[in-house]
Amino acid sequence: MRSHFQLVLTLVASLAASAGWSETLGDPVKGAKVFKKCQSCHQVGEGAKNRVGPHLNGIFGSKAGSDPTAKYSKGLIRAGDDGLVWTHETLDAFIENPKALVSKTRMSFRGIKGADDRLDLLAYLRGFSDEPSNIPEAEPTAQGNYHNLDPAILAIVGDSEYGEYLASECMTCHQTSGANDGIPGINGWPTEDFVVAMHAYKQKLRPHPVMQMMAGRLSDEEIAALAAYFKDLE
């Protein structure tokens, strides 16, 4: 396990020297403490096994929901099939608010709000993803920050009448009845989760190409309007 830490620290040192990222990379020793929050469901390190959640060895660079021996929600498997790969950026978003990135994930964990805690945790976990092929070149410098959505964006009060009009475009695929025949229903989604999820598509953190395209041209006000409309739709 020490060698894992060394690898991370070496990477940290070399990248910090070359790119000046020292301030934004986490501390794996602190991260080991943060990981205690995860331990009741996840194991990591030598001999780690799947328990309530999958073990986290080699998580960086792997496709979401791709361990055939682990139990996943349909939502997570679907996200993986749609192209969700665990990178520093996507893991950071997931740990911050699991349901914002993958609706209906089995991971009933409210998330870690502190950005520094997440950085530390990810620095720790990276020590167990030491196959170079598992670590895309851009890692670990890529820093997701979509979830640091400007509080002003989350505070926008949506115009639900405009939302109803905009929602008609959603209804071509997402049924008003809320039925899921291959495309999930989105009725009654809490406003903040809706807004964060749509911005995650807009920032191309969530993988689906149709949704990236649809969200990509919506303004902050339009996303708020849709959230306001769907919140009350039964």
Binding site: T172, H174, Q175, T176, A179, D181, G182, I183
Partner: peptide
């Protein structure tokens, strides 16, 4: 493909 089935159900309901 499964998404296309979802779309078919969605647009016909719409």
């Amino acid at each position: 493909y499964e998404e296309s089935e979802g779309w078919y159900a969605g647009i016909t309901a719409d």
